[in-house]
Simulated assay, not measured.
Amino acid sequence: MLDLPPLVDHHCHGVVRGDLGLGSFEPYLTESNAPAAPGTTFFDTQTGFAVRRLCPPLLGLDAHCPSAHYLARRRELGAYESCRRLLRGAGIGTFLVDTGLPGDLTGPGELASAAGGTAHEIVRLESLAEQVADTSGTVEGLLANLGEAVHSAAATAIAFKSVAAYRHGLALAPEPPGPGEVRYAAGRWLAGRESGGRLTDPVLLRHLLWSAVATGLPLQLHTGFGDPDLRLDQADPALLTEFVRATAGLGTELVLLHGYPYHRQAAYLANVFPHVHTDVGLALTHTGARASAVLAEFLELAPFGKVLFSTDAYGLPELYVLGARLFTHALGRLLDEWVAEGAWSAADAERVASMIAAGNARRIYRLPDGG
């Protein structure tokens, strides 16, 4: 049994504030935007089975109880009390929260209060640019306001994040775009954009990445699987190799999120580039009973001082429980095996587990002890 410090969840999102029935609960169990197969629900997945195994005891029910009983108990307790019990049962002490998703979601402060922990904000670059564009009528105004917005965000945020993998793919030219390219791209985006229009222009995406690099804050990059907006083959972290080379030595730590099914490529990049770090994020939540197999593949090559823990939980407090419990169970199972085989000492296993659970994140994001 591992003796872990409170986990640092270095990448997550807010949870919904209201009560949920089956129809509004189960879409959060999948990355799909389509209904489940006829005659089934998304509880019929590794994620759904893990919810029924790990979450009912935190709400006073037996593990593996029917989903209808679980959701009835959830409604009986109410959204806030259910959220409080689940978050406090996850074992997470610090939350780094990406606030760039739409919807009625809890902010970092609310999440920390419910969990009895601490929280910090991660600013999503593309969402920030879209907010700026909504109030900027000219190219000059957009670029000036965007520069100021990134600078202001850097004063309070713990990190930046990019979802360029969704908006264009990771096969971007690695160098910073020139001023003329940026002005032309900004003009084209403004001219064709209605309020709320998404940023997909590769030149502006590169401009955002390099603007974030210039602040010196850690930069998170979505890689690997996600919802259907994404083309999976364009989210392979190996496509970032030249960008990684171009940012070496500049003082900005790059953090590759999720990776799956390209988690071995992410591990390779962390192995060979000093400023690259990585996690498997929500892959463990979605692989459920196979989480230890995925984590074992990831740890084949990734240096242990480069590996971070995250849940990528979104919408449901249950996903924090799954991300944390599946991670700690998978890591404990692997390390117990390696110690029993004589490959690792027990002392090394405990030290590495503590690094991955919290220590690496505290160092990379410059977090104070206990905060």
Rank of each mutant, 00 (worst) to 15 (best):
residue 99 T to P: 00
residue 69 H to E: 15
residue 69 H to M: 12
residue 89 G to H: 01
residue 81 E to H: 08
residue 60 G to W: 15
residue 93 G to I: 13
residue 97 V to K: 05
residue 75 R to E: 14
residue 60 G to A: 08
residue 96 L to Y: 08
residue 79 A to Q: 06
residue 65 C to N: 02
residue 84 R to L: 03
residue 102 P to M: 09
residue 83 C to S: 14
residue 67 S to A: 13
residue 65 C to M: 11
residue 96 L to F: 08
residue 59 L to Q: 04
residue 69 H to R: 15
residue 83 C to A: 14
residue 92 I to D: 08
residue 80 Y to N: 15
residue 59 L to G: 01
residue 102 P to E: 11
residue 80 Y to L: 15
residue 102 P to C: 07
residue 90 A to S: 15
residue 86 L to V: 01
residue 63 A to T: 02
residue 72 A to W: 11
residue 57 P to I: 11
residue 68 A to Y: 05
residue 92 I to N: 10
residue 87 L to P: 02
residue 79 A to D: 08
residue 53 R to T: 13
residue 59 L to W: 06
residue 90 A to M: 11
residue 88 R to M: 10
residue 54 L to G: 00
residue 101 L to P: 06
residue 77 L to D: 09
residue 63 A to C: 12
residue 84 R to E: 04
residue 61 L to P: 03
residue 60 G to T: 06
residue 53 R to L: 12
residue 55 C to I: 14
residue 61 L to R: 02
residue 98 D to Y: 09
residue 67 S to V: 08
residue 88 R to Y: 13
residue 84 R to F: 07
residue 59 L to C: 06
residue 92 I to H: 07
residue 65 C to F: 09
residue 76 E to K: 07
residue 55 C to N: 00
residue 100 G to K: 00
residue 76 E to G: 12
residue 72 A to L: 11
residue 63 A to D: 05
residue 90 A to L: 09
residue 101 L to W: 10
residue 97 V to A: 07
residue 58 L to F: 04
residue 57 P to S: 03
residue 77 L to V: 13
residue 90 A to Q: 08
residue 78 G to E: 12
residue 76 E to Q: 14
residue 71 L to R: 00
residue 56 P to V: 01
residue 54 L to S: 00
residue 74 R to W: 03
residue 92 I to A: 10
residue 65 C to K: 01
residue 92 I to E: 07
residue 79 A to H: 04
residue 102 P to V: 09
residue 87 L to Y: 06
residue 88 R to A: 09
residue 86 L to C: 02
residue 84 R to M: 03
residue 79 A to K: 04
residue 67 S to M: 14
residue 93 G to Q: 03
residue 72 A to S: 07
residue 67 S to L: 15
residue 91 G to C: 08
residue 78 G to A: 10
residue 85 R to D: 01
residue 71 L to K: 03
residue 85 R to Y: 01
residue 61 L to I: 07
residue 95 F to V: 00
residue 100 G to S: 03
residue 85 R to C: 00
residue 95 F to I: 01
residue 99 T to V: 14
residue 73 R to A: 03
residue 68 A to I: 13
residue 76 E to D: 14
residue 93 G to W: 05
residue 60 G to D: 14
residue 82 S to Y: 14
residue 74 R to S: 05
residue 73 R to G: 05
residue 91 G to S: 11
residue 97 V to W: 10
residue 66 P to Q: 05
residue 72 A to E: 14
residue 80 Y to Q: 15
residue 56 P to R: 02
residue 65 C to P: 00
residue 73 R to E: 08
residue 73 R to C: 02
residue 62 D to F: 11
residue 62 D to P: 11
residue 70 Y to C: 00
